[in-house]
Amino acid sequence: MKEITPKEVENLLIQGKELNIIDVREVEEVAAGKIPGAVNIPLGLVEFRMSELEKTKEYIMVCRSGGRSGRATQFLEGQGYNVTNMTGGMLEWEGETE
């Protein structure tokens, strides 16, 4: 499983890179703040909403601490998607939130 740190994600955003970030936390958690531009697909819905994702794009999976996003990453990887887990999750995120 590919992994990326919150600092690396923040640096890519600062450089102006277009990132496809999927936040797999529950709606209430995301309401408290998410990475700007992240799309919320709660972990329990990933299987049902994966048709919204494109296999040609790269996605960064995010959750609170890295556990749920790790499970989502493994699942989507098994389905042929190009996904990377953000280790440490939002607990280690120091960048902007919306």
Rank of each mutant, 00 (worst) to 15 (best):
M1D: 13
M1V: 15
M1S: 14
E3V: 13
I4S: 13
T5Y: 06
P6N: 11
P6M: 11
K7A: 12
E8W: 02
V9S: 04
N11A: 15
N11G: 13
L12N: 05
L13V: 01
I14T: 09
Q15S: 11
Q15H: 10
G16C: 05
E18C: 12
E18T: 14
E18R: 12
N20D: 07
I21F: 12
I21G: 02
I22W: 05
D23N: 09
E26S: 08
E28Q: 10
E29T: 09
V30G: 06
A31N: 11
A32T: 14
G33S: 06
K34A: 13
P36Q: 03
G37Y: 07
G37R: 04
N40T: 11
N40Y: 03
I41H: 00
I41Y: 04
I41G: 01
P42E: 01
L43A: 02
L43G: 03
L45Q: 15
E47Y: 01
M50Y: 02
S51H: 15
S51N: 08
E52N: 05
L53G: 01
L53M: 04
L53S: 06
T56C: 10
T56P: 07
T56N: 14
I60S: 04
I60L: 12
V62Y: 12
V62Q: 07
C63Y: 01
C63M: 01
G67Y: 08
G67H: 07
G70D: 02
A72F: 04
T73W: 02
Q74W: 15
E77V: 14
G78I: 01
G78T: 03
Q79D: 02
Q79M: 09
Y81K: 01
Y81P: 01
Y81W: 08
Y81L: 06
N82K: 15
N82M: 11
N82W: 11
G89R: 00
M90C: 07
M90N: 02
M90D: 02
L91T: 12
T97A: 06
E98D: 15
E98P: 10
E98Y: 10
